[in-house]
């Protein structure tokens, strides 16, 4: 895959997921920690996954970001509890990985199109 062919939003999304996950794991003062955590746990994965659904309706896009972000985090957290490996740090890492994987899938779409 040629990285020059990637769109900037895809690249920015993947990089933001990595950076924000590290920042969230290191820890920030409370209001910033809240924003970073919500970003890396819900909004960034939601946005990355919603971009795999080629909707032209902006309102549906916003709904999918929220819906898919929350649903994915729920699925990951629940699975970790059933496997008795849960920690919020593990969830942060898992959601960052999901975001990056979704960005890679999107990048393949962009390269192919």
């Amino acid at each position: 895959m040629n990285f020059r062919e990637l769109s900037r939003p895809t690249l920015a999304l993947g990089v933001a997921a990595v950076v924000l996950s590290l920042v969230t794991l290191v820890g920030l003062p409370t209001p910033l920690q809240t924003l970073a955590a919500i970003g890396v746990l819900i909004l960034l994965p939601g946005q990355a996954l919603a971009r795999l659904i080629p909707t032209t309706d902006a309102a549906l896009g916003v709904l999918l970001v929220l819906g898919l972000g929350l649903a994915t985090l729920t699925a990951v957290s629940t699975a970790m509890f059933y496997l008795t490996v849960w920690s919020w740090q593990a969830c942060v890492v898992a959601m960052a990985v999901i975001t990056v994987l979704a960005c890679l899938a999107r990048a393949r779409q962009e390269v192919a199109s």
Binding site: T34, I38, L41, L70, L73, S77, T78, W86, W88
Partner: peptide, 13 residues
């Protein structure tokens, strides 16, 4: 499911 989500959000945020 919802409680797992809540636990993660409260822990991380």
């Amino acid at each position: 499911g919802f409680f797992a989500l809540l636990a993660t959000v409260l822990g991380a945020a």
